[in-house]
Simulated scan of single mutants.
Amino acid sequence: MDFGLTPEQEAIVEGVTAIARRFGDEYWRACDDEARFPREFHGAMAQAGFLGITMPEAHGGAGLGVTEAALMMAAVARHGGGMAAASALHINMFGPHPIVVHGTPEQQARWIPPLVAGTDQACFGFTEPNAGLDTTSITTFATKVPGGYRVNGRKIWTSTAQVANKVMLLTRTTRKEDARRPSDGITLFYTDLDRSRVEVKRIPKMGRAAVDSNMVFIDDLFVPEEDRIGEEGRGFRYVLDSLNPERILIAAEAIAIGQDALERAARYARDRSVFGRPIGQNQAIQHPLAECWAALEAAWMMTMKAAWLYDSGRPCGAEANAAKLLGGRAGHQACLQAMMTHGGMGYAKEYVVERLLREVMITRLAPVSEQLILSFIAERVLGQPKSY
């Protein structure tokens, strides 16, 4: 068993780290304060070719695996950018996967190169206000018309819709009550975000203000038939292809944010003196930080195992979900402990850890709840009856 990185993987980490370090705390603080998309960072990563790390080489990508994508996204998130940096990019890693797996050669040639170059930005319209994690209960409907479909409905928590020009859209083409199975009758599209037919309303939120989240109202949007991915009615199965990579990447990002916060806390504990000694000399400060390190390392091992299984073509549902659960919790605890280590100064924006804590919270909430992860593992690994 080899825990080391290959020279190619080390080059990815070093290259991404070099770019990330060009964008310091002041840059990310300004993006957060101004709720401004980090275009400069996004452009730098696109120019270096990293947006296509998992895309096919035939269309300008690197053709690498989820392991490399996880290493890349951890390096992205670890140097002060947090989830603002990660969320500006990670949709490129897992979001277009249905195009890669189920798109026609013509669709791949039309859609993938602009994503790799960063000239196209995509948002993902999956979640709905009255469906949440119960994806089979979406009601956004695509009605067949000559040449394509007319789509009407609502989506929520659609990230980057303020800046995107493309949308991957999950709809029903057969109503749930008329489908043979709940997962049937769902169709997936990738099409232009026509703002004359789509209204996007930003949702004010706790953290990651630099990357917008939105309510989306779709009113009679025409989608050409050539913008449908795969067969009509099989979209739910296509979306499943991207779920495990998404969980792995979210885990990697959460862990990296926790590592960033832990490094800041350890530095502060060495430098801050109270009662004539550094606060890091006190075990009440040392021990919680040491526990955070151990939890982050353990979560990272599970993340790498899940990525290895995925890239090896082996089942990895339990491991990917466990990585997301453990990574989110370890990252959150490290950020919380970092703020506590800073004391009152942890509450000040100057020391960054308050922003990292706000941003890492999303990794515990999305894209799947901890309760559903535990239910999945209980059912699929431990043989318990389905509970929901």
Rank of each mutant, 00 (worst) to 15 (best):
C316M: 09
T158W: 05
I250W: 15
G331W: 11
G4V: 06
L115S: 04
I138E: 02
E319H: 11
E253Q: 15
L289M: 10
R277M: 13
E10F: 04
H42I: 02
I248A: 00
G233S: 04
Q286Y: 06
A209Y: 07
L309T: 01
A84R: 09
F94Y: 15
A109Y: 06
V163G: 03
V151K: 05
R247H: 15
I285K: 06
G235K: 02
D2P: 12
F50S: 02
R172V: 01
A46M: 10
D120C: 08
Y347Q: 13
A69F: 12
L221A: 08
P245N: 01
R197I: 03
T104H: 07
E350H: 11
K349G: 08
A210M: 07
A338C: 04
R208W: 05
G383I: 03
R267H: 10
L372N: 14
A30D: 13
Q283L: 14
E291T: 08
E199Q: 14
V368I: 13
F236P: 03
S312V: 02
A348K: 07
T136D: 15
V352F: 15
M302Y: 07
V116N: 01
P245T: 01
Q9T: 08
I19V: 13
Y27I: 01
H342A: 01
P182R: 02
V353P: 01
D212W: 11
G61S: 07
T17H: 02
E199A: 12
T67A: 09
G24L: 02
R272V: 08
A284M: 14
I19M: 01
L89G: 04
M304W: 12
Y268R: 11
T191G: 06
G230V: 07
T17Y: 03
A11H: 09
A46F: 12
F189T: 01
H342F: 15
G258V: 00
G280D: 06
C31W: 12
A74C: 05
P129E: 14
G148F: 09
F3K: 15
L5E: 10
R355V: 04
A164Y: 10
A164C: 13
L64F: 09
M215F: 14
A209C: 07
V16I: 13
R272C: 14
E68S: 12
R267Q: 11
Q337H: 04
M345K: 10
N165E: 12
P98C: 02
L71R: 06
E225K: 02
H97K: 15
D192K: 10
A85D: 09
L296C: 05
D33K: 15
D33I: 00
E128W: 14
M301C: 08
E232M: 05
E263K: 08
L262D: 08
G4F: 11
V368R: 14
G328Y: 10
R39K: 09
R272P: 03
T6C: 10
R329S: 03
M55N: 03
A46I: 09
A284T: 15
V381F: 01
F41C: 00
M73F: 10
S87N: 13
D271I: 03
I19E: 08
V101E: 15
C123F: 10
G346V: 04
M83L: 13
G49T: 03
L382S: 06
G233K: 06
G280W: 05
P7K: 00
F23S: 00
V66I: 14
A266N: 08
P367Q: 03
V352D: 11
A294E: 15
G65M: 08
A69I: 03
E128L: 13
R195P: 08
F50H: 11
D212S: 15
A378L: 06
G207M: 00
L289P: 07
